[in-house]
């Protein structure tokens, strides 16, 4: 293809996106579009899978049968999200094995929030309420993103996430209205998860390297700072409603902006965790790598069995 032809195709491509048309797997797309989508979508899938670990940590210790069932269902949903996000990413010409390889070698990232430990039951509430809350704010705009398979996957993901968020908040309500010990547990969880949840919405706009291009492709509709503000404005009243205190002495309603002003985020901590040195980075990766390596003989057996079955079928046919 000549340079001019490629340029023409690119122009048509950008025009389609501008008209809000969906790009489908078999359509022509610029290489950069493909790569950017593989990066973001696989990162999203990895986040779902690694995200199973901090919550899976409480399945055996859930305080009641009702909570245990809800937690199992929630973690199962996350596995399901991982599954269809991986499948959607595969439409861009990368295999699930390659994506795992990138995760296990640290080449691909996942949401840093999952590198914090879940040390009390209240963390199950805080994760649902804050982490899923922040995730929804990030993800709802993606239901209209330009790449068809991703947009369709996100519609289902968002429905389930909003259910998880209500479930998490309900755990917090119960604790906040419970005994002094329970209330303390809830406040402690909020104290530990608040700042990492704000960081989850990404670096400040000044430091974000992908924003401009992603906006054009509708992989992003609002800047990180705008999303963060939206999350804070939405969450502060929810905390007040159940009598919990946001751990930010600088948090103040700004009448003029009709928004909350908030304190400085510790970006050093953010980059420390992103670069692999958070409290649980090594453990999370070890758990994933172990599951994969210990499962190798099982996957090999399934493959061998399928081949034998196929052979027998062919022999029978002859």
């Amino acid at each position: 293809m000549s340079e001019e032809q490629v340029k023409n195709l690119e122009e048509q491509f950008e025009a389609r996106i501008a008209r809000d048309e969906k790009i489908e797997p078999k359509d022509w797309m610029p290489e950069k579009y493909r790569k950017t989508h593989i990066r973001q979508m696989s990162q999203h899938a990895h986040s779902e899978i690694v995200g199973m670990l901090p919550e899976g940590n409480w399945i055996t210790r859930a305080p009641s049968l009702r909570r245990k069932v809800a937690l199992l269902a929630k973690v199962q949903d996350e596995a399901g999200h991982g599954l269809y996000l991986y499948s959607a990413t595969e439409t861009l010409g990368i295999s699930r094995e390659e994506m795992y390889e990138q995760l296990h070698t640290g080449k691909a990232k996942y949401s840093s929030i999952f590198n914090y430990p879940t040390i009390t039951w209240a963390d199950m509430g805080a994760i649902g309420w804050l982490v899923d809350g922040a995730a929804i704010i990030n993800q709802v705009p993606l239901c209209n993103t330009s790449y068809g398979p991703y947009a369709r996957a996100m519609i289902r993901v968002c429905k389930e996430e909003s259910f998880h968020q209500r479930q998490g908040y309900e755990i917090m309500i119960k604790l906040a209205n419970g005994t002094p010990e329970q209330k303390e547990m809830a406040q402690d969880a909020l104290n530990r998860w608040w700042w990492p949840s704000l960081m989850m919405l990404g670096p400040t706009d000044a430091e974000s390297i992908h924003t401009a291009q992603s906006m054009k492709w509708k992989l992003k509709r609002k800047s990180n700072d705008d999303l963060r503000q939206q999350f804070i404005d939405q969450t502060v009243p929810q905390a007040e409603l159940i009598g919990l205190t946001i751990p930010d002495p600088d948090l103040k309603w700004n009448e003029e902006r009709q928004s909350y002003d908030f304190g400085e985020i510790d970006w050093d901590e953010f980059w420390q965790v992103v670069k692999g040195h958070g409290p649980m980075n090594k453990e999370r990766m070890k758990a994933r790598v172990n599951a994969w390596e210990n499962g190798a003989w099982v996957r090999d057996a399934a493959m061998a069995h399928a081949e034998k079955k196929q052979d027998r079928k062919e022999k029978k046919a002859v």
Binding site: I49, G56, A79, A291
Partner: peptide, 18 residues
């Protein structure tokens, strides 16, 4: 329930959790 998140594949993980 102990196995959730640690299965040999995503599909078996989902099935055992289920």
């Amino acid at each position: 329930g102990e196995l959730t998140g640690h299965g040999p594949s995503l599909e078996t993980d989902i099935a055992c959790t289920n």
